[in-house]
Write a protein that binds this DNA or RNA. Structure first.
Lengths: 187, 187
DNA sequence: CTGCTTCTTGAGTATTGACTCAATTTTATA
DNA sequence: TATAAAATTGAGTCAATACTCAAGAAGCAG
């Protein structure tokens, strides 16, 4: 769509605006007008580069999901601790995107069944990666036992992230470390 | 405001509509028009009974928070297991309200600082109740240790609820039991 | 520098949102 | 059953929404 330099730059400014707005004011208040004002462009430019508001939002949403699950094709040499660390880093460092990610299952999924399925697939894939990692560290575990443990770990991490969104003072990192140690056994 | 029987009935139908919509389609799509259609009334009746859309939504939101923390003045004779059970029952039996509750911290809190503070207070209160219950069961624990455990338990429960919203097949109850047993010690 | 593409703008449209109000009907009660 | 309060309606207002389009400005290859 964008071919000239300025077009590409504008596209990026629009995405950056959208990321910021979704994280700061939520889906409901992320309007085309707000996106354009933040990006210092008029609505016409927006629609020269994107087909619709939903398209931009979906682009950002995809980014958020990917950020939680980088290298989905990776052979998987990570440890459970590293996977958990990556998630907590994402939540702490990219707060806006973290909020978008957490909101997804609860809100976006309500009106858009496709998005709900995408989130569900992502979640199951995530459980699988954690489970594979745990089995690499503890080959003696049964697959079921490992899976249950990782479901509980991921639920715990999501719950901690949820808590942290409410209360930025909350020390999510040390709590996450406790969870990992419990679920993996002291490494 | 409402005095006659029919007014009270209408008020309840509006609240019921709002509860349903918030749970099924989320905050964004819960419009006055949708509420009125579902309640089989015109907008004028709505505004005869409520001052604004926000007022109804806030009413339902308060209900959702209260449902998770019934009897806030209670002397506190519950066990940790009972408190956890109450939450899981709420999530499973009142699915719509459960969704509203989970959405609150992530979405409503973004644009309304008052609501965010209310949720935060509620959350801290909840941690306190769980902690008190645990200390009653295990007086030997330090307050800090008990508190950390209960923060992790509540994070876990919220995470499980979050997972269940995505995937209704997920067996949240048995997983919650595991968490309680771990955090309390086998009762 | 020419000519074609892309970008940007500004002034729109159509729709939907929350909310209002005068007029009418319904309800409870004295 | 007369009456005042309350409930309901339907036809509105006004602002904000997503989105469009013709025309001019800017970018770039030959």
């Amino acid at each position: 769509m964008a071919r000239y330099k300025s077009g590409i730059a504008t596209q990026e400014r629009i995405l950056e605006s959208t990321r910021g707005l979704l994280g700061e004011v939520g889906f409901e208040s992320t309007t085309v007008k707000a996106i354009c004002e933040r990006a210092h462009i008029r609505a016409g430019s927006f629609y020269n580069l994107f087909d619709s508001k939903d398209q931009v939002i979906l682009t950002v949403v995809r980014e958020a999901i990917q950020a939680v699950d980088p290298d989905p094709e990776g052979i998987g040499s990570d440890t459970v601790g590293q996977l958990a660390q990556t998630y907590i880093d994402f939540i702490l460092n990219e707060r806006q995107m973290g909020r978008v990610y957490l909101q997804l299952a609860l809100t976006a999924g309500l009106t858009d069944e496709t998005l709900r399925r995408r989130m569900l697939r992502h979640h199951q894939h995530r459980v699988n990666r954690f489970t594979d990692a745990l089995l690499r560290e503890h080959p003696a575990l049964t697959a079921d036992e490992a899976r249950t443990r990782m479901q509980l770990l991921i639920a715990g991490l999501n719950g901690l992230a949820y808590h942290w969104v409410l209360d930025p003072e909350f020390d999510i990192r040390s709590k996450a470390d406790i969870l990992v140690r419990e679920r993996v056994g002291i490494a």
